[in-house]
Design a protein around this nucleic acid. Structure first.
Length: 826
DNA sequence: ATGAATATTT
């Protein structure tokens, strides 16, 4: 029997009456309601006109909650000779659409020989309900032009909903006027809603004002229209007007108005509306509860969100998505994940937005293993191909997990890429320190004619400043002036940062004067720029100005200030900042601040003070603190304290190569080669490899990267020739190579060659041979500049009469006439 | 028949 039923279902709706008569006996035993209906259909020829029977059919249609049942019903309708009946057929059209299968709707519709207005309306709204807006409009025009029938006022609300651009909408508006349906309440309310969808609030408001009668739907259309377009004040105005007319909010009004409270950052009002909902019995409305969860989550009030969620009687996907996203966006990925696991047994199936949250959760937990299964899940469901947002969230997930190869692969496979897709990939590369890949993707984006937006600039500019691509950064600046985006607080700050980090402090300052300075963001940027250039005094002056202007500094401001002081050796001023931060601004120092303080004391040679400071810290020192102490020990050659610090370090963070390198350098400096070997072996056992040193230089809009000892550059021969030439001249000026920076136990002439092929020196030599005489040279180095190179560069600046600006991972060195701006304190 | 909520990049 099940097989027979299966065959029947496959035949629908092309079956013949005789199939059905064979099936009916089986059906009778299975579904009483259906068999009853089938019997009555067979007995009476005009069943639907009979009142009691009609009730039965309505129940029958309503009871069809599955596609299979609908097909059975269809079968019954046909077998009882009712297929030609417009009433039943139109009901079937609606039913199939309601169950999401619009092609069966269309099939049924096409079988109807004589179509009336009700039939056409059913088909149009079937398309609208299933989201096939284009087909809905086509169907409407077919109806209007070819059927010879006149659309009625039932026709327009769904058709207006199907208009997906302003042109269609206005054309439809004209038609409404031409046919004279503007008197209809629903039609006009639909027009209001349509105009708000396209952001044409003026036209919407005019129609709304002219309405002689307004029902709940009209008020809601106007209010939600303002809400969706972010016009909070107007939305509240209309709401007040409504209240004055004595109309109270219904669930839809509440749901529309709650996001406005978020937008206005008015949590009090939000809670008042929650109270209103409780008072008016809307508390358990599904939509109202979902909106409340979202509101509380945006205010960070997770307890309230959870309470609303707990009290719900019925929860749908949106409820679960909202509560999961609430925890995910408020940095509690563990709880969010727990809720996801609770969701499954309730029978609510995750949708693509659940997976968007899940991918972010997995990224926050840095759980690469589950990352792969999230990817697999989305892939299997076909969401990756169907929905950009799903794809983007997976690209973002892999980026945050640091698996850029996978991120790139997912990105490449996306059938549709929007700006966000590109931005996500660019940001991913930039955040993982792969600036040149970020730039490459940005260039590809340009070739694809995708218009960048604010987020694009905010990710590409730091990538440019990272590799020192000043010329390309300036080109972006030019573009931003045209777009008038350069005064945007985030973009402007990125530009300031870019100029500062590319050595153009003057340009950074003049930009800073132009951007709005109401928040700490641009101030932080300009203060840190001065800091890395070694101008701590000016950084402090800017800080005083900031205070005078009433801008509240944040913890980043103090990180920039403290590191400025430590670079310049301003110990007292640094201590003052540390005090002001806590006393005046009640900012509790975080590890970053403590690290700066250790650095401040340590660099200045107060190693004991630095160590005492660490001991007095109220929080447990982490690797960065001991790392700062170790760095200071290296500068001042205190090997005992260094050994102590590195013991603490390897307990805390045995994964960071930098510390092994520092320690082994110290042993190498003092010639303790067995110590060097020991540390190197330790690092090797833990599978760590030294970060390769590289330097870059931008020549003719192109960034060239040099690795230490690399000889594969096209101009390699000329570069080494120039370097030998320069070394000879340097020696005549009294240069003696400082072999303590050679970290290998080799012969003397080998040592000289190693120093000569340090990446910064290759880049400088390349700059000298490929740019006109006396033009400044700007170099970037990913690690700290080596002491011998620092000496050499001073002399090179004198010999070649060039300014040489070197930015290393720490700060700027501005070489001119044989001296460096840092005054050898670094 | 109309009216509604959740979302990816900085």
């Amino acid at each position: 029997m099940p097989n027979a039923l299966f065959i029947l279902l496959r035949l629908v709706p092309t079956y013949k009456g005789r199939h059905i008569s064979k099936i009916l006996p089986f059906l009778q035993g299975r579904c009483l309601l259906f068999s009853a209906a089938a019997n009555s259909l067979q007995r009476t020829s005009d069943g639907y006109e009979n009142n009691s029977k009609k009730f039965n059919f309505d129940r029958l249609f309503k009871s069809c909650t599955q596609l299979e049942l609908a097909k059975c019903l269809h079968a019954i309708v046909v077998v009882s000779g009712k297929a030609g009946n417009i009433f039943f057929s139109s009901k079937l059209v609606n039913l199939y659409a309601y169950l999401g299968n619009v092609s069966l709707s269309r099939h049924t519709f096409d079988q109807i020989a004589k179509k009336d207005v009700y039939t056409w309306n059913s088909m149009v709204s079937a398309y609208v309900r299933t989201g096939h807006f284009r087909d809905a409009l086509d169907c409407f025009y077919q109806f209007f032009m070819t059927s010879g029938l006149r659309p009625d006022f039932y026709t327009f609300p769904p058709v207006l909903k199907a208009c997906k651009n302003l042109l269609d909408g206005m054309r439809m508006h004209c038609l409404v006027l031409k046919l004279g349906f503007e008197w209809d309440l629903f039609v006009t309310a639909s027009l209001v809603h349509m105009y708000t969808r396209f952001g044409i609030l003026g036209s919407a408001r005019k129609l709304f004002n002219d309405m002689p009668v307004r029902d709940m739907g009209s008020w809601n259309a106007m209010i939600s229209g303002y809400c969706q377009n972010g016009n909070a004040a107007e939305a509240l105005d209309v709401l007040n007007e409504m209240k004055l007319e004595g109309i109270t909010m219904d669930p839809v009004t509440v749901v529309s108005i709650l996001p406005i409270c978020v937008q206005l950052d008015d949590s009090l009002n939000g809670m008042l509306i929650h109270l209103y909902a409780i008072k008016h019995g809307l508390e358990f409305d599904l939509f109202v509860s979902n909106a409340l969860i979202n509101m509380y989550s945006k205010f960070g009030q997770l307890k309230h969100a959870q309470k609303v969620f707990n009290r719900m009687v019925e929860r749908d996907v949106v409820s679960w998505n909202s509560i999961i996203a609430a925890y995910e966006q408020n940095d509690d990925p563990h709880r969010a994940l727990g809720l996801y696991y609770n969701m499954k047994p309730t029978g609510v199936n995750p949708d693509y937005l659940t997976l968007v949250s899940l991918s972010s959760i997995v990224a926050q937990l840095s759980d690469s293993w589950n990352g792969k299964s999230v990817h697999g899940y989305v892939l299997r469901r076909g969401w990756l191909l169907k929905d950009v947002i799903s794809g983007n969230s997976i690209v973002d997930m892999y980026s945050k997990l640091g698996i850029m190869d996978s991120a790139r692969a997912v990105f490449e496979a996306l059938p549709v890429k929007d700006v966000v897709s590109w931005n996500t990939l660019i940001t991913g590369y930039a955040q993982n320190g792969l600036s040149s890949d970020a730039i490459e993707v940005y260039d590809m984006m340009q070739e694809c004619n995708i218009t960048p937006n604010q987020a694009t600039w905010v990710s590409i500019l730091p990538a440019y400043s990272n590799v020192g691509a000043l010329q390309q950064g300036m080109r972006v600046h030019g573009r931003l002036i045209k777009n008038n985006l350069y005064l945007d607080i985030f973009v402007g700050t990125c530009l300031i940062d870019m100029y500062g980090k590319c050595g153009k402090l003057g340009d950074a300052i003049s930009l800073f004067l132009e951007v709005p300075k109401t928040t700490s963001v641009p101030w932080n940027a300009i203060i840190s720029c001065h800091g890395i250039h070694g101008h701590a005094e000016k950084a402090l002056k800017l800080f005083r100005e900031m205070r005078e202007e009433g801008v509240k500094p944040d913890h980043i401001t103090f990180v920039s200030l403290l590191s400025a002081c430590s670079h310049a050796g301003l110990v007292d001023e640094g201590q003052w900042c540390f005090h002001v931060m806590q006393a005046d601004y009640r900012i509790q120092p975080i590890l970053k601040h403590y690290g700066c303080m250790v650095d401040l004391f340590g660099r200045a040679g107060h190693l004991e003070m630095a160590y005492d400071f660490i001991k007095s810290m109220p929080v447990k020192p982490d690797a960065s603190i001991w790392g700062a102490l170790l760095g200071a020990c290296r500068i001042h050659g205190n090997i005992d304290l260094a050994t102590f610090a590195s013991d603490r370090l390897f307990e805390l963070d045995s994964e960071n190569v930098g510390y092994y390198v520092l320690l082994s350098n110290m042993y190498a400096n003092t010639g303790k080669w067995e110590g060097v070997d020991k540390v190197r072996a330790l690092a090797r056992d833990r599978g760590l490899r030294k970060t390769p040193g590289w330097s870059s230089i931008e020549v003719n809009n192109k960034v060239d990267v040099f690795y230490t000892g690399n000889q594969s550059h096209p101009s390699s021969e000329e570069i080494y020739k120039e370097l030998r030439n320069l070394t000879d001249k340097m020696k005549s000026l009294g240069y003696t190579p400082d072999y303590s920076f050679v970290l290998q136990d080799v012969e003397e002439d080998e040592k000289e060659h190693i120093l000569m092929s340090h990446s910064e020196r290759l880049a400088i030599a390349f700059g000298i041979i490929s740019t006109p005489p006396k033009t400044p040279i700007r170099i970037f180095k990913n690690l700290r500049v080596c002491g011998d190179c620092h000496n050499a560069t001073k002399l090179i600046s004198k010999i070649t009469e060039r300014e040489i600006i070197v930015r290393d991972s720490n700060r700027f060195h501005h070489f001119k006439d044989g001296v460096c701006s840092c005054g050898d304190y670094w």
